[in-house]
Every structure is written in structure tokens, then in C-alpha cells.
Nucleic acid binder design. Sequence first.
DNA 1: GTGAAAGCGCTAACAC
DNA 2: GTGTTAGCGCTTTCAC
Lengths: 352, 352
Amino acid sequence: MAATRRPTLADVAREVGVSAKTVSRVLNEDGPSSPETRQRVLAAVAKLGFQPNLMARNIRVGGPDTTIGLIVPDMGNPFFGTVAGGVEDTVRDRGLTLLVGSSSDDPERERALIQTFLARRVSMLMVVPAVGSDHAYLKTQRAAGLPLVFLDRPGAGLSADCVVSSNRAGSQEGVTHLVARGHRRIGFVGDLPTRLYTRRERLAGYRAALEDAGIAYDRSLVTGAHDQRTAAEVTTRLLALPDPPTALYAANNIMALGVVAELARTGRKDVALVTFDDLPLAEILEPALTVVAQNPAELGHAAATTALARLDGDRTRARTVTVPTTLIARGSGELPPRDRPSAQVPAPARRG
Amino acid sequence: MAATRRPTLADVAREVGVSAKTVSRVLNEDGPSSPETRQRVLAAVAKLGFQPNLMARNIRVGGPDTTIGLIVPDMGNPFFGTVAGGVEDTVRDRGLTLLVGSSSDDPERERALIQTFLARRVSMLMVVPAVGSDHAYLKTQRAAGLPLVFLDRPGAGLSADCVVSSNRAGSQEGVTHLVARGHRRIGFVGDLPTRLYTRRERLAGYRAALEDAGIAYDRSLVTGAHDQRTAAEVTTRLLALPDPPTALYAANNIMALGVVAELARTGRKDVALVTFDDLPLAEILEPALTVVAQNPAELGHAAATTALARLDGDRTRARTVTVPTTLIARGSGELPPRDRPSAQVPAPARRG
DNA sequence: GTGAAAGCGCTAACAC
DNA sequence: GTGTTAGCGCTTTCAC
């Protein structure tokens, strides 16, 4: 069965005995058409199984395609999946279709995806920037009016709209929650080394909370990991310190999994814990997990709303939208420090 | 700043002082070109920031676009996110771009998405069919050679390639695990009422396991729920039966969350549990959760491989690929039935 | 090695 | 109410 040619407007027109333009008029409800031709055209369309070629249409009409390009680090991460869902829900009514790619947080892959999307003349571009990528090369597109929104993290090299969570304030709130329960040695388990915006912000929130409480920053309590396994490892390392933390703060959902798993594995129920990002089973852990929850669907929604406004001609200055986080106190942050004076009195230094 | 027109091939040609065709030749490495013109063309491309219009190219070349249409029920569900990732990883090398849409399991939405994708002349279509959707209308496209793969569940109304998990065998293995520990009353918590393929299969596996063990099927032990909350509710209802189950089997990840949460909330550590689908924290629950794990990335990979083979001219009969599941015994399935004779002896009926 | 002309499927602009 | 012509940005075909 050879791949038969798809029918075209001309085929339909021939079938009905009218001009191509008439068929086009009927299908797009553009200009007038007699009820009778209308019927016959629609019948022929159904008979031939004609489907207008959107690309051909687009090329003639000019302007951007009715697609939107979205780049995330990893679609399997429910955080980004939910972000994508938020975007789609918001643009659906406008008849826009989602073009999605994962960068795996690799700047080169991100750039290749952006090039592909630009070649497809997407109507807007929404990017979760990979660590270390520079977007200066997009200046021309921006100037030409392409809506560009950075998601979750700001882009580098040009000013553009940006939608992020309240990483710093949320982090500060979470750590303050621990400080208020008397903890003075609070371990930080964060993601990739430096450079990544969200880590910087969340670390800054951690430091701000300590500073507010008059607690000196101790570099040895701040650790970095890349995945659940390494997060578990640094948890062990932190708790083995001569003067170990009495509470931990995990800076994202992957780190949270690692810390939670490690505390469970070693049966440590005496360490208070707050995590950034909610987990599906947070409520049923013992103790139930206290988290600073993000709102990924709203992140996607806000990004789409911003981009749509640009598409509709909004030429005001680039703005940053901050989507608030929510502290959900469930119990794991309530533990007081053990074997230590509570509240503001510094713990005696125990070395060796 | 008015939206300036994007530069075209003709613009580049004018800049260099050659014909459009020469520029096209250079960029596509089609036909010969002198090193010198080559340089000048590339310089002009860079200077003008020219990006070939992929849609225009496609329209001229004919044939399908280099996109692939993927429809899932919900992108926020990590299962489908991971499936999408598996697809993308597999098609990336072929230069294909992913067009993604969520159907929310609504047949009308699914159909609208498919129409849009067809209008975009996708090179292949991969669909997780919504409950109750009929795909007979795609026969023409299939006949015309469009690769079509149903994912996770078979489609209805036409024969097409299909990639599914070993739902029945996996389910049977999970329930047999419980039977082998002496359970004879095993509650089933499944998803949407009837009609959904995966539920049918998983229920069939449950029944097969019982039958193998000579246990009569008890309709009152089989319950349906739609989300985590209702799964928790039916768990309660099951355990409140006059002759309650001593073990539970949850037929997907959402059900699993509901059952696990409810058992934890009520402190029931005496009920054995096996779930279909793994959970991120399964290992650290108490007892650790025994699961029948699916392999969503492999599902996406297999679907993409199949579709690519079709694209490359494979015209053999439609096939169904079954991706094996894996029983991961972690502990929650090890509990013997309490207050009951073990193994093959039937429990005394306790009524009222 | 390069160019001119035609045409992919569709619609804008103008006829009538 | 309908048809004609031209042209979107690109590539194919054929000529030089």
C-alpha cells in the first residue's frame, strides 16, 4: 500500500467544481459563501478526508506559527511536568500547541533546541535555563518581538521576562521554622555546586534566617549533592561531624528524598528536617515532613500569561514574577534539639 | 521597536550577491559550491542572523514534517513524563521534535489534539488512548503510511502497533506474592470503573493469581477509586468489612499513595500490601513497600523504536510489544495474615 | 560552480 | 457569492 498523496485544497476544489479560494473561504469562515456550496464543500472535505496543511497556511499568512517552544531539564521530574501542564492549560484556548524538549541541563542541548524552535517560528519561547548557558544570542529575536520567558531560573546575557518561585524567602521561612524550635546547628543539603540560581537563592535564604537569629554561618554544615544517592551520603557525613547539626534543611525534592531515605535507613528520628519542595508521601512519613512547597502549575501558568501578554503587544519592561511558596508544617520541623540547651544559648563546643 | 521581518534566503542571497539557490546549496550541503562563496554566504548568514524557515522547507520538500505527535493523559504524572523522556531520547538522533499534548483522558480532547497534529503533518503519532475513545477515523492515515503507536493501552477501532506493560502477568505475580505468604482475602484497589484496559488487565492478573491458588473470587473485595483521596476511602471501607482482607493490592501509583497514606494514618501495620507501580519513597516506608515496578522509559523507547521502523518502511503486521514489569520485594508483602490460619486453610466465616 | 523558472499548499488582494 | 492572480520561503529541475 503505497503512501498515497494527502489531498489538497485543489483536490477538494476540483471535486466540488469550485475554485480553491472558495474552499478556503468555507473552511476558514472567511468571506461569504452560499449555503449550498458550503454543504458541497464540506461533503467533499469529508469524502476525501482532507486536512488543511497548517504549515502551508502559516507560510502564506506569515507571522509566527501557532506553536510554543518549551525547554525543561527533564520531563520525568514531576515538577517540570506539572510546569508544562500549567503552560498547556493556559495556552490551550488560544489554539497554541506545545513543542517540548529536554535539555538535561546541558547548555549545548538547550541551544540546539532553541535553534530548532526558532527555525519552526514558534510564537513564543519558554526556557528553564541550563546551568551555565548564556542567552545573549537571543537578543535579536527579543528585539524582533519574540516573547521569551525564563522559567524557574533567570536567564543570562539579556533581559527577559522571568517567572520564579520565592526561593529565598521560602527558604528563609523554612529555616526560621527550625530556628524558632531552638536549633542552632542546621545542616544544609543543596544541589549542584555553585552557579545554579535556585541553589544560590535557597542558600541565601538559609543564611538570612541564621543571620536574623544571630547564628554564625558555619561552612562545614553546608553540603552539596547531585542526586538522591549523594544526598544520602552527605547526610551521613553531616551527622558524623564532631559537632553535628540537630536539624537539616534539604533544598529541593531530590535532596529531600536522599535525606529522608538516609534518616529512615539509619533510624534517626531525633533530627529535625524541613525540605524545599513537597513530596507525594510527605504526610505519612514519621514524623510527617514539613516542607516549603512550590507551585509548579502556577509557575507554568504565570509564564504562559506573561508570554501571551507580550504576544498581544505588551511592550513594557521585562518583569520578574515571583510565585510564592508555602510552608506546610507537618511535624518533622517540630523536634527540639536534643542534648543541647534550647533557644538562644549557644551550644558548648564539643570537639573530637 | 517594530517586529522587523525575519531575514529570508533571498535576503542572504542579495547580501552576498548570489542567487537564492546558491545559498540553499551551501546551507544544505547540497551540490558543489566554491570555498569562497561558501565563506561569504556563511558570513552573511551570521551577520543577518538568518534561520531557515523549516515550515517553508517542508512544504516544498513534501512528505511528513520532522515532528512527532505525542498525547498523554497528564504530563504532571511522572509515569507519563518519563515515557515522554524515553521517546525523546530515542528520536533525538533522528532530528525529530516532540509535539506534546495532554488529553486529560478526555476522548474529545484527544481527538482535537490528533487533528491538530495531523494538520501539522507529524511524521508519527504516539497516543496513550483516553478511556472510551475510538480511533477508527485514523484508518485512512494508517493506510497512507502514518506510523501510529498506542502507548500504555491499546487503541480501539483499528489495528495499530501498541506498546504496553505486562499488566496482567505483573499483577498476577504481585498477588501471588501475597498468596504465597498465606493470604486468602486480598483486597483490590483499582482505578476508574470498567473500560480502562490497564485496569481490566491488572484485575485479570489478580483473579488469575487467586484462581491458581484455588481462592474464590469475592466481588466485595474489589473496589474502584479515581484518585488518592477516594483510594484512601475505599481502603477504609475494605478494612471495615465483616470479614476484612488481610492484604491489599493497589493497582497503580495513585491508588498506592492513597492506600499507603490511609494505612499510615490509621496505624495499620498488620495489613500486607503490594502495589503496581513504584513510588519514590517506597524503600523507606515501614514496612518498605513491595511493588510491581513498570519501566516507563522503556515503554517510550520501545514505542519510538517501533514507530521509527515504520517510518523506515517496515510494513509488517501491527505488533504489540509488552514491556516486562519487575517485582521488587521490600517487605510490605511479607506480613503473614493475622488472627487467621495460615496457608491453604480457609478462614472461618465471621459475619455481622 | 551557479542561476532562472516553476511549484509545494495555501491565502491576500483584487477583480467581477 | 465566486474566481484570478500573485506570492509566502523554500527547493526542485534544468539550463548554462
